[in-house]
Design a protein around this nucleic acid. Structure first.
Lengths: 346, 346
DNA sequence: CTAATTAATGCAACCGGTTGCATTAATTAA
DNA sequence: TTAATTAATGCAACCGGTTGCATTAATTAG
């Protein structure tokens, strides 16, 4: 059907080696030959067959992103969403293709990640820490296959490259922001106890309180389900305590909205008497009333970094491993904007 | 490094043809030979090289999804998000890989879509109607390359396969829902005048009003920017009109929130005196207060259908083209839940 | 019992690039 | 002027599967 490199060679009166060298800018080619061949390529609508190319030089110019989605239909995670674009952007700049595959589906005992790696369909792979295991990492390391983990894989002792949001710093930042705005009794509503990101945020929260000389009370740290009802219940109960908190840091917007509603139901004005910070700057936090201050996590940048490291690793297999933490920042909104002068007594 | 089919053949004392036939379940192989070869494959950790395979049989078992993202960093579109999962799910079931590429970036005068198609990196392609042109479609048709368009490509006269949300039906549905709840003077806030989906929704809206014997007033149809401020301004101005609307259908949640705030600022209770429906069932509509009734669009299903058609087309190049419209449905919430008995006078 | 089938497997070409190693012509050094 | 370089290009093997066409052995039909 379409022209091959030999068709071009024949039509231009050269050998296919010459055409190949022209395509790849290798070797020394005379100007006339180059021009003639390029013209023929244009005329024949010649496009090199990428598969043949990959086959010949043993590399695919493709990377894979493995995602961790069990119930695909109900998935709507903007973490994933933005990371993908970061990854795609960098891949694109480096002339790599991005393959996306769900690591949960599998045929027999091989996951799609296995198939892509050992079937040599990709040159490198990005996988979430939720999907890694000693077995898989062991296999990857054994054949020195380039990979980068999304999220700190601290469950493994191995030395490997990863990129994560600095959730410890995020927790600290949230506390500092609240304290600067005059809040002192800060609760933490986590969306689960097992997730490393929740653990890290709590670590940062506790550390900041310590540094500021404020007590870390375990009854102020609550693990909830990730839904409004759970946030509302947990927060309501905290309001009944002897020393109720005057602020809450929430792991996601569901909990933040729940906390907001709990405050309202208890007649506690936000932000005057109660401050709220949510992690993850989503439209809900922006459009809530009052709008909710957030710890913004740069998931696009996360993807960029992951892809960037991976591609460097592909190009230089001897590159040492990298661990990158991406700082968060506060997006200040109404839910913590207490009039500081009044609170500070100035 | 890793074992090839010839290594396996040698170790099992057979020819590589036999091994190939065993891998692909082709031809007739004796039980003993099969067992022996399978054991050797296991022992040598043999995995067929997918690139070599693609090269040999001229098909890649991969499809591409081209996305239309100009400003990647600020992208957060759950339309795309869910569609991808629908596509990936079906691709996976059919042993296809999914490559994602941004159709906007380009080197020279070839887009990434061109490269994937003409470089034969994929067997088929899904592309949004916003990115197609007569040129591209012409080229694809010329080489009979399988493709499916996301969104009705009615700007082309060509006969091609596409999948779209039934936005006309969505507009109709929204009107019916409002009328059933006692609203009669319904405005439409569109997020733009050029987008086909907005045009279709307005068509459905107008058609439903006609059928119900209600007037279609052009001052009730407003094209806004997709932000809260725009929705608020436009709606506020409509409230000043001689015959203000008693309900609004909004193309997205920004406009819906804007309309809601306009109503509040004008002292108009929602849903009692003003009803609001938004397209696209996102967390903002669910968590708004009052919560907002939405026209739910099944973007996951959209992706599934697109991938399904594409893969069938790849397997049967002579398949006639398909056009699929996916119906919307109402998710009823507080913003339209007027007490019907009282309104109906029952 | 011989001829015609069928079963099981091997041979070798092919898919379309890439690249090490010639080869030839042109240029420079001695 | 001849030998040594350098420039420009060709030859042919190779990457790892797949498959049409033998080939041989075993089975069945006549």
């Amino acid at each position: 059907m379409s022209a091959t490199i030999r068709d071009v060679a024949k039509a231009a009166g050269v050998s296919s080696s010459t055409v190949s060298r022209i395509i790849n800018n290798k070797g020394v080619i005379s100007e006339e030959t180059r021009d003639r061949v390029l013209k023929v390529m244009k005329k024949l609508d010649y496009v090199p067959n990428d598969t043949a190319r990959s086959f010949a030089n043993g590399s695919t110019s493709a990377i894979a992103l493995v995602i961790d989605v069990i119930e695909a239909r109900s998935f709507s995670n903007n973490f994933f969403n933005n990371s993908v674009f970061g990854i795609e952007t960098i891949a694109h700049e480096n002339n790599f293709n991005l393959i996306i595959t769900n690591g949960h589906m599998q045929k027999g005992n091989t996951t799609s990640a296995d198939k892509l790696v050992f079937g040599k369909k990709v040159d490198g792979i990005i996988l979430p820490n939720s999907l890694i295991s000693h077995t898989l990492i062991g296999k990857l390391n054994k054949i020195r296959f380039p990979y980068v983990v999304l999220g700190d894989p601290r469950m493994l002792d191995a030395d490997n490259s990863w990129v994560d949001i600095n959730n410890v710093q995020g927790g600290t930042l949230a506390v500092h922001h609240l304290v600067e705005n005059g809040y002192k009794n800060i609760a933490f509503l986590s969306s689960g106890s097992k997730e490393i990101f929740n653990q890290d945020r709590i670590t940062g929260y506790s550390r900041a309180l310590n540094e500021l000389g404020l007590p870390v009370l375990k009854e102020r740290i609550r693990h909830c389900n990730s839904d409004v009802g759970s946030g509302l219940d947990v927060m309501s109960r905290m309001f009944q305590a002897e020393h109720p908190p005057d602020a809450a840091i929430c792991s996601d917007y569901y909990l933040a909205v729940g906390a907001l509603r709990a405050a309202r139901q208890n007649g506690i004005p936000v932000p005057e008497a109660f401050g709220i910070i949510s992690f993850d700057n989503t439209p809900v936090t922006e459009l809530s009333e009052p709008s909710i201050t957030t710890v913004d996590i740069d998931t696009f940048g996360l993807g960029e970094q992951a892809a960037s490291i991976l591609i460097r690793k592909i190009k230089d297999k001897d590159m040492s491993s990298r661990q990158i933490l991406i700082s968060t920042k506060i997006i200040e909104r109404e839910s913590t904007k207490r009039n500081r002068r009044r609170q500070d007594g100035e």
